[in-house]
């Protein structure tokens, strides 16, 4: 992973913090054929992208931008680390056995009253 990340950072982006992604004026011939959205547009859709809420062209535009944009790379990692921390933290809350019993008892009682 670190190897691929390094490659992306070396060859992928503009190197301009807060700037725009390659827009066709630089990069390899294969890259120039791809229409790129600017950083602020990709950033504006970043949460939706990470949440799996984008599809079709919108998703593809963000994906392509993030694949090659060096300036956006740390931002993506930042948000991912944040979201991973939240998901990790959810393991705490569990319904106790006594609550389960209480719920099942109340359902059984309700069934009896029907």
């Amino acid at each position: 992973m670190a190897f691929f990340d390094s490659l992306k950072r070396l060859f992928g982006g503009t190197g301009q913090t807060g700037g725009t992604a390659p827009s066709g004026s630089s990069g390899s011939p294969s890259e120039t054929a791809v229409a790129m959205i600017p950083c602020d547009e990709a950033s504006g859709r970043l949460f939706e992208y990470l949440d799996g809420e984008l599809d079709g062209i919108s998703k593809e535009e963000v994906r392509r931008h993030l694949e090659v944009c060096e300036a956006c790379y740390p931002r993506v990692q930042f948000e991912k680390h944040f979201m991973e921390a939240l998901r990790r933290s959810q393991n705490g809350g569990r319904a106790s056995e006594s609550l389960r019993e209480r719920v099942l008892q109340s359902l059984a009682q309700d069934e009896g009253l029907d």
């Binding site: 740390p74 948000e79 921390a85 939240l86």
Partner: peptide, 27 residues
């Protein structure tokens, strides 16, 4: 916060150090 931590920890590694209880409290 991304802008604030950009120099020290641009990729937000610090989130990994925060214990679950603290995240619960923050929420």
């Amino acid at each position: 916060v991304f802008a604030a931590s950009r120099d020290e920890d641009p990729e937000g590694e610090f989130f990994r150090s925060i214990v679950d209880d603290q995240i619960f409290t923050a929420i």
